[in-house]
Nucleic acid binder design. Sequence first.
RNA 1: GCGGAGAUGCCGGAGUGGUCAAACGGGCAAGAUUUAGGCUCUUGUAGCUUAGUGCUUACCUAGGUUCGAAUCCUAGUCUCCGCACCA
Length: 819
Amino acid sequence: MKYDFKKIESKWQKKWEAKKIFQVKEKSNKRKFYVLEMYPYPSASGLHMGHALNYSIGDIYARFKRMNGFNVLYPMGFDSFGLPAENAAIKAKSHPKKFTENAIKNYVGQMKELGLSYDWERILWSHNPEYYKWNQYFFLKFLENGLIYRKKAPVNWCSKCDTVLANEQVHNGKCWRHSDTDVETKLLEQWFVRTTKYAEELLSDIDKLDWPERIKIMQKNWIGKSFGTEIDFEINGEKFPVFTTRPDTLFGVTFMVVSAQHPKLFELVTKEQKKIVANFLKKIKSTKQEDLDKLDKEGVFTGSYAINPANKEKVPVWVGNFVVADYGSGMVMAVPAHDQRDFEFAKKYKLPVKIVISKEGKKVNEKFGEAYTGEGILINSGAHNCLNNREAKEHISVELSDKKLGRKKIQYKLKDWLVSRQRYWGTPIPIIYCDKCGVQPVKEKDLPVKLPEKVKFGKGNPLKTNKNFVEVKCPQCNGKAKRETDTMDTFFDSSWYYLRYCDSKNKKMPFEKNKVNYWMPVNQYIGGAEHACMHLIYARFFTKALRDLGFVKKDEPFLKLFNQGMLHGEDGFVMSKSRGNVILPEKVSKKYGIDTARMFLVSVASPDKDIDWSENGIIGSLKFVKRVIDYFEKRKFGKSSKIVESKINLAIKGISSDIEFFKYNLAIIKLRKVFESFEKEDISKKDAENFLKMFSVFCPHISEELWSNLGNKNFISLEKWPVCDEKKIDEKLEKQEEMIEKIKEDILNIFKIIESRGETKTKVYVYVLPMEKNIYDENIISEKIGKPVKIFAVNEKDKYDPTNKSKNAKPGKPAIYLE
RNA sequence: GCGGAGAUGCCGGAGUGGUCAAACGGGCAAGAUUUAGGCUCUUGUAGCUUAGUGCUUACCUAGGUUCGAAUCCUAGUCUCCGCACCA
């Protein structure tokens, strides 16, 4: 039989849309549940099967929760600002807006064809002024509250993107978008978000989250908390604070190393050393990042000396390539005896090594080949000698602190978030520069600062050359002023979109508090792991900052996070246009139906694993889907047998929990199993319907069709999820069935062996233990093997047993004789 | 280097102390139907053996714990991912 999947699909998609069945309101007597997938960047090439997998995972979950009686918010929107759109548009000689909106249109159309149960009423896209207006609003709120500031700082610059990047967007010294482009360091005035203010909370709340462990660890590492002491070293009469986690080794400092990017570096360089240092810096700059990573520790003497506050010793200050400029103070105290990096450096440049910690409290041999970084007793450390180094950390810190020469400090790797971008396609930063009044925020009533549509694309940021945009009056003095032409990092947009969904059409404010308080937090967030240290940290920051500003009540935006796996092409490589292994949902849908594709995608493996597309695999799913359709079309219902009742209830129990924990692949196996069992048995309409309901989250269109064919008027999508009736699960019965199945197989097996010898037998005699007599039923077994079967208990006197087979009978394994 | 995840049959992938030669799917093979089948169905798919069985060898490698291990412990190998000179 041929099925017109396409017809069924569009029929139900239209009905769902017409009846608005997936729209939700806050007023409900059900409990809320917020399912969210990371909103996508709408690329021109549209959705491929990989996207279909992503969204199917969420859709199945949303449908499951909806049927389980929750008021489910399941929205979709678009991360439509950003560089790719701008670049692509320039390339296509189009406008990013036109380009993007076209892409969005395609996306929405395709998503609807996937049968995704979004509440489309809440759709949003970030390049909508109604949306980005609130970006600007939050920007100003943050500015007002000291969470945004402007500073001149060394920043990461990608020459291909023609813009600065956040630290999170620099991967291995390369741009996150251009793995072949080195990120340069430039000194620029930029806007920063003070994410570090929440470093501690961002770190400590990670433990509250129900997220994949690896993502949590990645965030923890990214935030990178360490406890230490900041010690003031005097250089040329000026105090330089230096962070260390090993204050106990302070007496072992034999030199200092300052980062090559240190802003005050040249203040330290003496006349005599100027040339040497300049050459050194030149060398570093001209070396590719890649090679730099492999490079040995290198450095040159600056000519200056620092005074160790502990013992007033003068130690030389070097400039080195291995000191990170923006961690700590960009300068380290070097203790070659007890730090491997310092050791290597000292060895290379023949700097002194001074041992201050020894393992047994005795002097150790100085002819070691590496630094000793372990625990021990202090030596050569003045008054602190003989202390255990752990105690010494405390003692020395306290002493420094008392003398105001240092202080305990907690240091984070997390840095403030640089949000300025020198590009067009983003939210304009709502700032005006006035010669008289300085930096002026745009007045709230003047928001949004709209992105001008008519711009000339050329080199750099087209906003810069747009007079209408740039030339404005100062909001303070009404005099001549200039508008900020930088736009915001698109991660700003995506840091709060999940809040906007709660009230996406609000024109008066970003969202109504009580709506957000109703829906938030997101119960289940779904997206790729690549955002562990970008979007997911920014969004968490935003939630906390907005909480403190009174906008929301929750501490965390996403309670649970699920990382879906990637779909690869049939060749095992990531699906991509350039590789030519892209599978399009439209094509698959035409050939197999989108329901079949959905089922296949989640049945291959656990959804958090990468899988390969397989044409054979989907055919396997198609077979099953067809069987289900055939079954429901031809089947007459009656009363379920006990065994079917037991099986369906067991299935309900298992499948519910499998879906809850995203083990869709196992749920489908159970669906197949239970379906197989009642293909052969009598079944009630209700039990069949329960099966169909569970089937429906995977194959919604077909299920709606079959459901309505059964005479139901409502949508199966809105039906109640079946509840497992534990009482109907009959383990004994299941076991009995198993035993009968086993004896059947055994009998058939013997037949086969015998027939392969050319003999023929027609009668079957089975000898069971007396206590098992009631388990085996002559009629059932006869029917199953299609030959007459006689069953005897082994202790029956007048049993027919010419070869005394009955002696072989064991518990659970009756003896068999064929004749 | 550090941190995390993992290694199961021809393949994908379940299973985390016995009920496991190991779910389910795919592939392959044989058979049935069809005598057009690339449709559908059944059976088989480590080796030997047998009237349903039994034995041996198997879940990366080598050891160990246990009456008993794919499953627990130890060491190692490999793969993937993240961070990468963070003082």
